[in-house]
Amino acid sequence: MASQGTKRSYEQMETDGERQNATEIRASVGKMIGGIGRFYIQMCTELKLSDYEGRLIQNSLTIERMVLSAFDERRNKYLEEHPSAGKDPKKTGGPIYRRVNGKWMRELILYDKEEIRRIWRQANNGDDATAGLTHMMIWHSNLNDATYQRTRALVRTGMDPRMCSLMQGSTLPRRSGAAGAAVKGVGTMVMELVRMIKRGINDRNFWRGENGRKTRIAYERMCNILKGKFQTAAQKAMMDQVRESRNPGNAEFEDLTFLARSALILRGSVAHKSCLPACVYGPAVASGYDFEREGYSLVGIDPFRLLQNSQVYSLIRPNENPAHKSQLVWMACHSAAFEDLRVLSFIKGTKVLPRGKLSTRGVQIASNENMETMESSTLELRSRYWAIRTRSGGNTNQQRASAGQISIQPTFSVQRNLPFDRTTIMAAFNGNTEGRTSDMRTEIIRMMESARPEDVSFQGRGVFELSDEKAASPIVPSFDMSNEGSYFFGDNAEEYDN
């Protein structure tokens, strides 16, 4: 783990906690998980779902989305002020799938948001429990990260689609708070800032007046979040320049895209947490497990152990491969979309394939898809080993990566060399080191050039047997250095459309 220093740990961010010791953190995270579980059980009762239907990941996603929508204050306010045809701002819903006479049927349900809020609060001892809501947002974000390569979004903001390893959390809503900021990748933060800068260039009043003052505060806050992700002084200094700019424009845009590229080699610290679907927490609570009393951590053995003992089902389209669908969801559960496939294969105990080789589309089923041909199958979400999630980018030494994705962002704290394609990355730096950030740029390029592919990161860190909950005997895996390590390699994943 990167030293926490003055930073709060993510469990504290996750639970809005002030400084807590490890036991208190485990208890408050457990409380959050228990609340999600209780809410899910109650919703299944309301909807009269069978046990099997309640364990269907598509039903879980609909129920999670309903509660997130019920608590989305800004959108609710907007919907009330701008009524649109056929949208009731006070209601929320989605597809629920039921097994009827041996076939899967889709039923569109509609609930009062007020009623959903009441059920959620009741499951969370009367609190709004925003930490639990954020947790579900991060699960949705991790699922998107594993399912889609955001080529269009990258290109629109002047970045290269091969930089997708920097895009963790790119679909997280803005209201996801400190826990959300911690899991956002460098590219995601750059993209958010670039969008602001572009608006400022096109709209003279963007930075002016009372609204402009708020915009400015948001801009500086985002700059500080991004600065905190960088691990070298030169990158941090460049972020200070971007933040202090009187009138952010093209120079800042250039600096930010430069920094994003540099992060492929001088990786930023991005938190990883295993956020599971509500249909995993519900049955665990129903079986009598007391998360608050037992304590829970999002970055240790607990999620692995929970998945070892969970039964989750998914709808499967006619030509999809259930094992591939399982891999997709497994990666999402562990926030591992940008991790090295060699490491993932070792931990999972079966070969993890790149996205383009998977015969599976996303987990969600569109409303126009034919239910007649839908089957369902068990998702295999178990693992051979477990490993500690990392909050750091690993040290800054790398190795060759593949054509589709030119770097990785480690999820697990496991000893290995970190793949990246130096030639491709360095070719993108057209040696432009003039301007006010020239000395920093020169320094950053120097550090990137001296990074050695064969150097090892996370020295001495290994994986653990599932029986080793105290992480007492690390097993340090050895990897084939020459092997392909990137998930979005030469990829044809669908595009994420909101």
Score class of each variant (00 low, 15 high):
A2H: 04
G5H: 07
Q12K: 06
M13V: 08
E14H: 03
D16R: 00
N21E: 00
A22F: 04
A22H: 12
E24Y: 03
E24T: 14
I25H: 02
I25T: 15
A27K: 12
S28Q: 15
G30F: 08
M32D: 01
F39V: 15
Q42H: 09
Q42N: 05
M43L: 13
L47F: 10
S50W: 00
G54L: 11
G54T: 02
R55W: 10
I57P: 00
I57H: 01
N59W: 06
S60Q: 03
L61P: 00
T62W: 04
T62Y: 02
V67M: 13
R75Q: 09
K77T: 12
E81D: 14
A85D: 05
R99E: 04
V100P: 15
L110R: 12
E115R: 01
E115V: 08
I116N: 01
I116W: 07
R118P: 05
R121I: 04
Q122T: 08
A123M: 10
G126E: 10
H135M: 11
W139G: 08
W139M: 10
Q149W: 06
R150E: 03
R152I: 07
R152Y: 01
L154P: 08
R156I: 02
G158P: 01
D160N: 08
S165M: 07
R175H: 07
S176I: 00
V183Q: 02
K184R: 15
K184E: 11
G185Q: 10
T188R: 06
L193P: 01
I197R: 00
K198L: 11
N205D: 10
F206M: 13
R213H: 04
R213K: 12
R216K: 12
E220V: 12
M222C: 09
C223H: 09
N224F: 02
I225E: 04
K229E: 12
K229V: 10
Q231E: 10
Q235C: 04
K236A: 02
Q241K: 14
E244S: 12
R246W: 11
E252Q: 14
E254C: 05
I265N: 02
C275F: 08
L276S: 14
Y281S: 03
Y281L: 12
V285M: 05
G288D: 06
F291N: 07
E294N: 15
E294T: 05
G295W: 06
S297F: 13
Q311R: 15
Y313G: 09
R317V: 00
P318F: 06
E320C: 06
N321W: 14
P322C: 07
H334M: 02
A336T: 12
A337M: 10
A337P: 15
F338A: 00
E339D: 14
D340H: 10
L341I: 15
V343S: 00
G349Q: 07
V352M: 14
R355N: 03
G356Y: 12
S367C: 13
E369A: 10
N370C: 00
M374K: 14
S376T: 08
E380S: 09
E380V: 06
R382M: 03
S383E: 03
W386K: 04
I388H: 06
G393R: 05
G393C: 15
N397G: 12
Q398H: 11
Q398P: 02
R400W: 08
R400E: 00
S402I: 01
G404Q: 13
Q405M: 07
I408W: 00
Q409G: 08
L418K: 02
T423F: 14
T423Q: 15
T424C: 15
G431M: 01
E434H: 15
R436A: 12
R436M: 08
S438P: 07
M440Q: 13
M440W: 05
R441M: 10
R446C: 10
M448C: 08
E449K: 11
A451N: 03
R452F: 10
R452S: 07
D455V: 11
S457Q: 12
F458C: 07
R461N: 05
D468P: 06
D468E: 13
A471G: 13
A471R: 02
P474G: 12
I475K: 04
G485Q: 10
E495A: 08
N498P: 00
